[in-house]
């Protein structure tokens, strides 16, 4: 087995106090391996979003441990955690969260700007990322001028710009029609398969979940079932099973640049 990029041990999250207390997570212990694609599936209120927030270091658990690359993060300073998120993670949101006042390129390069990368370097890498997602011609457009599918591709470009180890996608297809959904799903899974990015998807979309290598089915703050293996056949011929075990995907590889159209 490869090194677990993310591990949890007895993860508990409790909201509120006293009689109004709500146990969102009731002690979860699991591992996510490097290069793996994992879907966290469950109905709303099952705790899947809470779990993702804890994994993505956006929130702190009430008790239990989250470890990144074998290092527990709960003891780190907020500033270190922020820097870690900036360098290690990519985020794709259901609601896109693009800044309507800025151009597509500015939106895509935001993580680099936060990370303190120079403007010329930002723009170069931003254009590479947009090219990879075939959005280069929209670079100068305002983010509001795009269709839903285009917006989500811009979001993915933004998530990829800092060569993340882990890509978190929160209901990435929740706002898209089925045809566009499929494209976005393929882009995400392709990144995981061909570029060694660990993909963590939170969804209640059966179709998307079934394309992931592992599914954690959640109910009432607990993982009630764990399924492995891709169930439905994907439109791609590339073998995906046990892909994470391949030696070349063990080490973190640069994502950019890779062939144009690869993300189709």
């Amino acid at each position: 087995m490869s090194t677990p990029v993310l591990e949890t041990e007895n993860l508990v999250k409790v909201y509120g106090r006293g009689p109004a207390q709500f146990h969102a997570l009731k002690g979860l212990t699991f591992e996510i391996h490097r290069g793996e694609s994992v879907a966290i599936v469950g109905k709303s209120g099952s705790g899947k979003s809470t779990l993702m927030h804890l994994l993505a270091l956006l929130d702190e658990p009430t008790s239990g441990v989250v470890a990144l690359d074998g290092r527990p993060v709960s003891k780190l300073k907020p500033k270190t955690v922020s820097a870690l998120r900036n360098e290690t993670f990519g985020f794709v949101f259901q609601q896109f969260f693009l800044n309507p006042n800025q151009t597509v390129l500015e939106n895509v390069t935001l993580p680099l700007k936060i990370g303190g990368v120079s403007k010329s370097e930002r723009d170069k890498r931003g254009m590479d990322a947009l090219e990879q997602l075939e959005m280069a011609d929209k670079a100068k457009n305002k983010a509001t001028d795009l269709s839903g599918g285009q917006k989500q591709r811009v979001c993915i470009a933004r998530a990829l710009i800092n060569n993340p180890e882990v890509l978190f996608a929160d209901e990435p297809t929740g706002n898209l029609d089925s045809a566009t959904s499929e494209t976005v799903e393929d882009i995400l899974l392709n990144l995981q398969r061909n570029h060694g990015i660990t993909l963590v998807v939170v969804t209640h979309d059966e179709d998307l979940a079934s394309k992931c290598q592992r599914r954690l089915i959640m109910q009432d703050g607990e993982i009630v079932e764990e399924q492995t293996g891709v169930r439905a056949s994907s439109s791609h011929k590339a073998p995906v099973t046990a892909g994470h075990g391949a030696p070349e995907s063990r080490r973190r590889r640069r994502i950019l640049p890779f062939g144009k159209g690869a993300a189709r």
Binding site: P78, S82, R85, N86, E87, F97, I114
Partner: peptide, 16 residues
């Protein structure tokens, strides 16, 4: 609020 949340999620520190 959204924009601030996004920036913080993407790793902007409180101080920044």
């Amino acid at each position: 609020t959204r924009e601030i949340g996004l920036m913080k999620a993407l790793g902007m520190s409180r101080a920044k």
